[in-house]
Design a protein around this nucleic acid. Structure first.
Length: 208
DNA sequence: ACGAGGATGCTCT
DNA sequence: GAGCATCCTCGTG
């Protein structure tokens, strides 16, 4: 398996989001566990996107980054982890895209367990069925034990990285609007494998 | 099967 | 003080 390099991420965010579908997320956990999953759902966020944390952070006159919060890290090096807390409870994993100085990231929304499912289950509520291990952005970070400690780390090298499977299998990638947002709703920037059992049960904002 | 409501903490206004 | 890139539990049918 080839580890995806910084070149992969230093490209338009939409392209990265689409091409991450079918690749593997691998975590060589500090405890020695090896945890891996196939990515089946992503979302793209760009600096000119009102739903993105990086929106409106550039000074309109100078173009300089005018922010000292965590969102500034969206403008960092491609391939860096951007992890943040949502609803006070769940960590969401993103990978920074585009050249340094351009704000963008891809949210990893769902994966299919490939290795270490028993370790994932240890961190998830006992009542969760197998599908519920990793079929949502907050669930997969819990299963992988990803939290604030991962924020800012380099995802193009172990322990946490993306890998392209050696087989050349390609997936039909479907699109929809993004889940759970109230701004930028019309942009069809969610990418997923249609009918895959591990795609999150969330409903796109343009469907019911 | 599905929907409502609650948990819980950080960021920005 | 509001809003938030979510998930779980507990109602009802």
């Amino acid at each position: 398996m080839d580890i995806l390099s910084s070149d992969f991420f230093e490209r338009p965010t939409l392209k990265v989001a689409q091409q991450l579908i079918g690749t593997q997320l691998v975590y060589e956990h500090p405890s020695g566990e090896r945890i891996a999953g196939r990515i089946v759902e992503t979302e793209a966020y760009t600096q000119d996107d009102p739903a993105c944390h990086g929106w409106g952070l550039l000074d309109s006159e100078t173009g300089e980054l005018n922010h000292d919060g965590r969102a500034a890290d969206l403008f960092g090096a491609p391939g860096t982890a951007y992890v943040y807390l949502i609803y006070g409870m769940y960590w969401l994993l993103n990978v920074v895209t585009e050249p340094e100085g351009v704000g963008g990231a891809v949210l990893i929304r769902a994966v299919e367990p490939l290795q270490g499912a028993e370790h994932m289950a240890e961190r998830r509520p006992v009542s969760s069925g197998h599908v519920n291990l990793t079929n949502g952005p907050g669930k997969l970070t819990q299963a992988f034990d990803i939290d604030e400690q991962v924020h800012g780390t380099d995802l193009t090298t172990p322990p946490l990285y993306f890998a392209a499977p050696s087989d050349e299998h390609t997936y039909e990638v479907a699109t929809s609007s993004r889940i759970g947002i109230t701004k930028g709703v019309e942009r069809p920037w969610r990418f997923f494998i249609e009918d895959h059992p591990y795609v999150s049960p969330g409903v796109p904002s343009d469907r019911r």
